[in-house]
Design a binder for these strands. Structure first.
Lengths: 196, 196, 196, 196
DNA sequence: CATGAATGAGAATTCATTCAT
DNA sequence: TATGAATGAATTCTCATTCAT
């Protein structure tokens, strides 16, 4: 059976996804999750705490995904690709939560000093580090051409953030982009011209 | 002399940039711009209206930038690069406004039916069209390898949105990315292996 | 051609009828009547002034109707009936205005000291006087049984106010009441042998 | 001890009676009732909700009054008279509330779809039904002449609404009307040989 | 006569949060 | 753990009205 805390999170995510964080009151969350309004603050203390919890969950999933990449069987380029695919997978499996996070967590996440900011910061550091490691490995094993490592890592992060943003938040007719984006980036990293 | 409406916009952007849209009250905007609070609503009817006006301005600048690309002197690839650089330039020249827009306009812009959404939608259509035209041109004149046109156009949009997002909103130590991003994408479009 | 003042009144009545006085802003009235908002206050000075003007018009019509009753051809009872029918006619011919007046003029009209109150007060005095005169005449000429004059006059006023109120303001399925009400009251005034 | 909700209602009625619904702010109600302004909206959600609650109370009293008429001891005419007197009694016992209701509830009550309208509608249906039953009974037992039942029921309702309206809302020197009105109507219902 | 930009005094409502139970 | 009545600060928005042109 689901704990009250989980019920709250689920209800909150549903409401945030539908109406946005700022247009959802704690009263509504309480009502939808079937708990008293006070209970919400027993578990979270701040409304934003719900978002932080969700962010934490999603980042955990993402990191777990990263850790499951079996590096010893792969060359650097394959590691990079595995990382990108792993991330895509998490986004797909938790698309509602991710949508809410990238749409509504702006206030919390972009202001140094908040808990959300700290979470994101350390996650990004971890991710960029890992990507850099993979890129170095690739350059060493010749699967990747000699790119500027840090810049490329950040660019890959940015590019896939943009793709995710487009996919999740723009209710427009957009062609499936994930595979194309991965191909474009991976091919762009290869040392030799085996372009289609 | 500046009109009251312009004073309001300037004050609002400054405040939004500093504290965020949701943490800025109309009273503060009125105070900083030196008009009565009612005047604000005489000119904008909704607090969000200010953001819409700013969005409109920035999109106008961007489109003007696009239109200034002299296509007949360039091959397709050069056109694409010019477009990306043009966009970068606008972002740099209006970085405060753009920052506010991508951070704070989420509610308005992601909900079909709003004015902001309509603005974005038609702008994106225009941009993707133009990018597609350039890509086609480049494929025809052999400056670009035969990529999937629509997907590539959307990917370029997404990637540079991501880069801009990172640059403007993450108060982290991030290396300058613009030039690297442009090179990566442009090189990735070239048909032949003249990679550095 | 209609004067701007008349346009304002017409627009105001339409809006008041639809949405009520308190839910109609002077801006809306100005917009619908095609004049500037300032023009409204050039002609009326107060929003309530519009209602007062309309009240004045309707009372004029009513009094004109009263004055057209040719008393010398009728006995007292016939005079009373003529008065009631005359009033009914005015209500029917100006039903929209009357509806607005009895629904929306409550604040203005029930507070001694206002212009609206004065208008109503003197009108009622006139009406009750006239009714009393007719009743007296009827008692004298035996067309009416010997009723208490003042009380009966007020009762007739009240009863037909109630009927009008029901007809104009209750969007319910109510049978046509006017004729029945007139018959009931007129018959009730006739000399009647077997009263307890 | 009085609940906060009751305190709010009492204060509101006093203020509405004195200054009218539209000229009374929720802040004033809160101040007079000694609760925080937010508490008002915790209990009522809308300012109009207070009026609805009062309407409900008064209608309950009225219906209770109707139900206390012991029909088996009376003929039809006596039942009608009892109903009219019962209603008069409620109006007198709750004159302040009734005054406020008929003066200030216009917006809420005359617009189908509102809660107030629904309350009034079902009450009127009940009342007209009851009156019709009494009239039928009277016609059967010969205490009432053969009048058109539905029309007469509505007319009685309208006439006494008018009388109440006059009594409560017109600060004019008006003679006591209740008894006279009842007599006039009751006598008008009696079997009467010489109608045209 | 007519305008419409500007005003400022409110007003209703919202809502995260607290706390006694 | 859980509750829900109560809060009060904050906020957007409304609107009749004015006045310089």
């Amino acid at each position: 059976m689901k704990s009250k805390k989980d019920k709250i999170i689920d209800a909150a995510i549903d409401l945030f996804a539908e109406k946005g964080f700022n247009n959802t009151s704690t009263a509504e969350i309480a009502a939808l999750s079937g708990v008293a309004q006070g209970t919400l603050f027993y578990h979270f203390k701040q409304k934003e705490g719900i978002l932080c919890e969700v962010l934490d969950q999603v980042l955990q999933h993402t990191i777990t995904g990263y850790d499951n990449i079996s590096q010893h069987e792969k060359n650097g380029l394959e590691c990079v690709e595995a990382l990108l695919r792993s991330e895509n997978l998490v986004v797909e499996q938790h698309s509602k939560k991710v949508t809410v996070l990238i749409r509504d967590m702006t206030d919390e996440v972009h202001q140094p000093g908040t808990h959300g900011f700290a979470l994101i910061e350390s996650f990004l550091k971890y991710k960029i580090n890992l990507l850099s490691k993979f890129l170095s490995k690739g350059i060493a094993d010749k699967s990747i051409r000699p790119v500027a490592i840090e810049e490329t890592a950040w660019f890959l992060d940015a590019a896939f953030y943009g793709v995710m943003h487009l996919k999740l938040l723009k209710p427009l007719l957009i062609p499936p982009l994930d595979e194309h984006a991965i191909r474009f980036c991976i091919d762009g990293l290869k040392p030799n011209p085996n372009l289609i």
